[in-house]
Design a binder for these strands. Structure first.
Lengths: 149, 149
DNA sequence: ATGATTAAGGTCAAAGATGGTCAAAGTCAG
DNA sequence: CTGACTTTGACCATCTTTGACCTTAATCAT
């Protein structure tokens, strides 16, 4: 298990236990996991993005803090939010994050999740060039989501 | 026995023992079989495709891994998966692999298997140019599968 | 008040750890 | 011999970990 995953796991647990929003200290986390403080930033920027369903706020200086919150919205609101978030291009990793998040939020069913995962996979779109794939992914997913809402 | 076959055999065994999904390390496999790492990729791309009934996910970087999973789905889901996997062209070997897999999975009957094998064979399509044959094979099989589901 | 000090958190690039790609060379059946 | 499949290796891409250096906020001494 990677240290980043352990840290992420800890944060998820904290957010869950704190009812959707945890107040954390970067230096304390770093000490607890015996890593450099910047690793906490790494974990936050790679695993707690809006695409993953989280927001992060922080303040520096004395009494500084990091607050990680889970985004929660109604189905249609989340769908439209996601649609608006998707730009003209969407890479495979982002698509996976979005689908996972929507599935966990109960916005799409298991079947919809699996089917869309396939449709948006690199393999399914491999007939197109890399750049075109991202464009296709964006338009396909947007259309599907609008259809769903 | 080819090295690639030994590796494939090892992976199949691992997937089976791990209940349908094995977590592997490319470098470790390469070391175990005393081959270059890229040979592992060769084995995966030639013997663990969706057509063969497997999916492969991987991640690079520290803590990277390769996960090989056997696809197990309901009839319709498997059919749609196959349909989505088929591109604009489909060569005879792939078609055979698909048909064999679907037959073994009980998705198509013995009769359907035999009939489709004939229809999609090089011979049956020999009236068309080589390239066109692959395109035909893809469109024919896709339409048949959609019909079936 | 205000400048210095202290206490957070942020950025970024380098180093490390894996896996991926592609084309050349080798092998083997027909 | 030829075409298809296999084996290799050089070079590439991506993810993680670490550390030097930067920014911001609160507090303290004068």
């Amino acid at each position: 298990m990677l240290i980043s995953d352990l840290i992420a796991q800890y944060i998820v647990k904290a957010v869950t236990e704190e009812n959707g929003s945890a107040l954390l200290s970067r230096s304390e986390l770093a000490e607890r996991f015996r890593c450099v403080p910047s690793q906490i930033n790494y974990v936050l920027t790679t695993r707690f993005t809006p695409e993953h369903g989280y927001t992060v706020e922080s303040r520096r200086g004395g009494g500084g803090y990091i607050r990680v919150s889970r985004i929660r919205m109604t189905r249609d609101c989340l769908i439209m939010h996601v649609v608006n978030t998707i730009g003209e291009e969407l890479d495979a990793a982002s698509a996976t994050a979005i689908l996972t998040n929507m599935h966990q939020a109960g916005v799409i069913t298991e079947d919809e999740y699996r089917l869309l995962s396939v449709v948006l996979s690199e393999q399914a779109l491999s007939a197109a060039d890399r750049n075109l794939r991202d464009v296709l992914r964006a338009s396909i997913l947007k259309r599907c989501l609008i259809q769903l809402s």
